[in-house]
Design a protein around this nucleic acid. Structure first.
Length: 446
RNA sequence: CGGAGCGUAGCGCAGUCUGGUAGCGCACCUGCUUCGGGAGCAGGGGGUCGGAGGUUCGAAUCCUCUCGCUCCGACCA
């Protein structure tokens, strides 16, 4: 993409409404525009990152054997009357009436609807296990939306629903989600720690929240420092292998890590003192096992191998997709702007032409741009008639992890400059070597 | 929902107390110079002062109502 033809409305000054760093940078980098309290348009750069995150979530869900579908944003109230939540949910639910005076709502979540789909089409244990998920916009009419996309009213969320014949199978589904989530967050360059959580309005007793440590987090967290060093890494996981999946979950949940809701001071004090940590975290996902809460009330029954009709065992598992943009920025930025992890960056690399209009640098940048494209890497090429400083400042702000700088001085010596946004370190090399290096870096993130 | 603020050009703000022909910086347009970390000079364009009503010879400014947004708290993915 040539920046001269792109739509990237960056701001030099901080918009006054933004208090926290991720919100400020998302506005300044031209990623979002607020349309109403807690409701945002996703401008091209933000949309790219949102789609990258969504893509990673999809890939890891499918890898775990889960099946994508798509449910609507608007739902009939009657389904929610069946579960009893139409009255329980309160003011956070946005209620709408259509022209025929039917009660509708903008879905804050989808347990009822997925249960309706399931009961209409599935009746036998032989169809289980099954996990259906979708990535869809939700709406919760928060009293006080804030922090940009971290706590909007409209938000994009992946929610998955598991259906199993018994508790053991349902707990395996729970564990499978935990592992798939660990992998998802790692691919985004995040350390998200599963913490034992309280169940909240969705109900159920087995539940973990995934928290990204950040001083701006909404939850107070207590943890053993060692838990932050755990990595899933590139290991192959057989998601059907219950023992293996359970083993990984044990590995990640044995060390102490809890939110203030479930914090146990006595247990916390048993951690060696030098590893005890109290901090704040941003919740980016949650997994629940809740058994037959919805299947019993809504009549989602399956026949088991003894011929008995029993309510199906369920769980629901969510990832806050749009919120993740804020969480990633909170976890990865400096005073100049965002620093995108390679896994989610809107563009893998930026090209800065230091002397726009000079036939030599123009040609070299064009060639570089094409060479990157030939490797499947879409560069953001700053071909504007701007001075070097302005181009560098823009690149730093929008946070592309790698930058290739092309100037007449370097070209005379046959080199371009490759700079890491994260370390700030630059290295001179031939254009070909720079392309190869970038390609190699991103090969690990495919 | 309790408390506190703010709406003036795309963004950041002054002007409001004390009514008198709407300003500054950035951004934008033109020209010249400049050219490796958000350039300089000169010129230029852009605003129903959130909205409605009222007071007044005259309202961004005073009064009433209203809408929107932000912050603190409670709540929440």
């Amino acid at each position: 993409m040539r920046l001269s033809r792109y739509f990237l409305p960056v701001l030099k000054e901080n918009p006054s409404e933004a208090q926290i760093v991720s919100h400020r940078y998302m506005l300044r980098a031209g990623m979002i525009k607020q349309q109403a309290a807690g409701i945002y348009s996703w401008l091209p750069l933000g949309y790219r990152v949102l789609k990258r995150i969504e893509q990673i979530v999809h890939e890891e869900q499918v890898r775990a054997g889960h099946i994508p579908l798509l449910m609507p944003t608007l739902q009939p109230a009657d389904l929610w009357r069946e579960s009893g939540r139409y009255d329980d949910y309160g003011q956070e639910m946005l209620r709408i009436r259509d022209r025929h005076d039917r009660d509708m709502l903008y879905g804050p979540t989808n347990e009822e609807m997925i249960t309706d789909i399931f009961r209409a089409h599935v009746g036998s244990y032989k169809d289980l296990p099954m996990t259906l998920y979708h990535i869809q916009w939700k709406f919760r009419d928060e009293v006080r939306p804030r922090f940009g996309v971290m706590r909007g009213r409209e938000f994009l969320m992946k929610d998955g629903y598991t259906f199993d014949i018994d508790r053991d199978a349902a707990l395996h589904a729970y564990n499978r989600h935990m592992v798939s989530y660990l992998r998802t967050y790692e691919r985004m360059g995040l350390t998200a720690i599963p913490m034992r959580a309280a169940s909240g309005p969705i109900g159920g007793d087995n539940t973990h929240e995934f928290l990204v440590l950040a001083s701006t987090g909404e939850s107070e967290v207590f943890y053993d420092q060692a838990v932050t060093e755990l990595k899933l890494g590139p290991r192959e996981v057989d998601y059907d292998n219950r023992a293996e999946v359970e083993g990984i979950c044990k590995e990640f949940t044995t060390l102490y890590a809890r939110t203030d809701e479930t914090h146990d001071a006595a247990l916390f004090d048993q951690i060696p003192e030098d590893r005890r940590r109290v901090g704040r975290g941003i919740e980016v996902g949650q997994i629940f096992y809740f058994g037959t809460k919805y299947s019993a009330s809504m009549g989602a029954l399956v026949v088991n191998d003894k011929g008995e009709r029993v309510p199906v065992e369920m769980g629901s598992h969510g990832i806050g997709v749009s919120r993740l943009l804020g969480a990633i920025i909170e976890a990865s930025h400096d005073d100049k702007g965002i620093i995108w992890p390679e896994g989610v960056t809107p563009f893998p690399v930026g090209i800065v032409n230091l002397k726009q209009g000079d036939s030599g640098t123009d040609a070299a940048c064009d060639a570089l741009y094409k060479a990157l494209a030939a490797k499947g890497l879409e560069a953001l090429y700053d071909d504007r008639e701007e001075r070097a400083g302005a181009k560098f400042a823009t690149m730093d702000l929008i946070g592309l992890p790698w930058r290739i700088t092309v100037g007449p001085r370097g070209l005379a010596a046959g080199v371009v400059e490759l700079t890491s946004r994260r370390s700030g370190l630059s290295e001179e090399m031939s254009a070909e070597a720079a392309v190869d290096r970038i390609a190699q870096i991103y090969a690990a993130h495919r």
